[in-house]
Simulated scan of single mutants.
Amino acid sequence: MIRLDVTPESAGWGYSGLRVVVLAPGDEYQQATGGDEVVVVPLSGSVTVTTDGDKADLAGRASVFDGPTDVVYVPIESTLTLRSTDGGRFALATARAAKRLPFRHIPVAEQRIELRGAGVCSRQVNNFATTDVLDADRIIACEVLTPGGNWSSYPPHRHDDLEEIYYFEVAGGGPAYQRADGVREVRTGEVVLIPNGWHGPSMATPGYDLYYLNVMAGPGERAWVIEDEPEHAWVRDTWAGQAIDERLPFQKEDR
């Protein structure tokens, strides 16, 4: 079952997309990638990914708060099949692309797991499809985990050369908040689309850990250029004397 489907056409832009697929135990899902390169990200559960001659078994995880996951890159003009013995939820992050690059399985050991910020701005960034980890044509994707009460995507920033999707999950069913052309309450399964302009922070309410998946792509060079909003850029300087939140990193033995 398709739980969420954001395409460049439905978003009113040219490149970024996201689909969330829910599989019951033993179910299978298939799609033609067409002109989209795809990164398969298990949100919960394990899955076998096959294309026209390639295969990868993704160990996945129990939930997005249960540590990083291995992912798979699937090129354009492929037939993508997902099969899950025990069922689960799987994000298909997409970007409209031109180059056909090789299928690739990216285990956690090859990713860059980063603890960013400090104090109440502490968060964890799992870089699995950023420019320094994955060779792709256009897609850039990562996931950010923010302990309850903390702020991420802060200071506010922009990267107007990229169309950005924020997909949210909130532990315990609580609310979270995202600033982007105003402040919006978000809950599990919701998205915020950011075509351009200043955005952030993403706010995890006390008691409710926050996860979001970022999917980005654009017409220019594949580069993640971030410009802090000048009025608030000074906040970075305050982190120097603060410790990283001791609740990080999110790991299986902790949650």
Rank of each mutant, 00 (worst) to 15 (best):
2 I>E: 11
5 D>N: 13
6 V>A: 06
7 T>Q: 12
8 P>T: 02
9 E>R: 10
15 Y>W: 09
17 G>Y: 12
17 G>M: 06
19 R>T: 12
22 V>M: 04
25 P>G: 03
26 G>Q: 08
29 Y>E: 12
30 Q>A: 15
33 T>H: 10
35 G>V: 14
36 D>E: 14
39 V>T: 06
40 V>E: 03
46 S>N: 11
46 S>M: 06
49 V>K: 03
50 T>A: 06
52 D>W: 01
56 A>L: 04
57 D>A: 12
61 R>A: 15
63 S>P: 07
64 V>M: 03
68 P>S: 06
69 T>P: 06
71 V>Q: 04
73 Y>H: 14
75 P>T: 07
76 I>G: 09
78 S>F: 00
78 S>C: 00
79 T>S: 12
80 L>A: 09
81 T>K: 15
81 T>F: 09
81 T>P: 00
83 R>V: 09
83 R>G: 05
84 S>H: 10
84 S>C: 09
86 D>S: 14
89 R>A: 14
89 R>P: 01
90 F>N: 02
92 L>V: 05
92 L>C: 01
94 T>Q: 13
94 T>R: 15
95 A>L: 07
96 R>W: 10
98 A>H: 12
100 R>E: 15
101 L>Q: 13
101 L>R: 15
102 P>F: 10
104 R>S: 13
105 H>F: 08
105 H>L: 12
106 I>L: 07
109 A>M: 06
111 Q>H: 06
113 I>L: 14
114 E>K: 15
115 L>F: 08
116 R>I: 08
116 R>E: 06
116 R>S: 03
117 G>A: 10
123 R>L: 11
124 Q>C: 07
127 N>M: 09
127 N>Q: 14
127 N>V: 01
129 A>T: 00
135 D>N: 08
139 I>V: 08
139 I>L: 11
140 I>E: 01
145 L>T: 03
149 G>I: 01
151 W>S: 01
153 S>G: 00
155 P>S: 02
157 H>A: 04
162 L>D: 05
164 E>V: 02
166 Y>W: 03
168 F>G: 00
169 E>R: 08
170 V>D: 03
173 G>W: 08
177 Y>W: 12
183 V>A: 11
189 G>A: 04
189 G>T: 02
192 V>N: 00
194 I>V: 14
195 P>C: 02
195 P>K: 00
195 P>M: 02
197 G>I: 05
199 H>F: 11
199 H>Q: 07
201 P>E: 12
201 P>W: 13
202 S>Q: 13
209 D>H: 05
214 N>Q: 07
215 V>T: 11
217 A>L: 10
219 P>R: 13
219 P>G: 15
221 E>A: 15
224 W>L: 10
228 D>Y: 13
230 P>E: 11
233 A>I: 03
234 W>Y: 14
235 V>Y: 13
236 R>H: 03
236 R>E: 07
240 A>D: 05
244 I>C: 04
244 I>M: 09
246 E>Y: 02
247 R>C: 04
248 L>D: 09
251 Q>F: 03
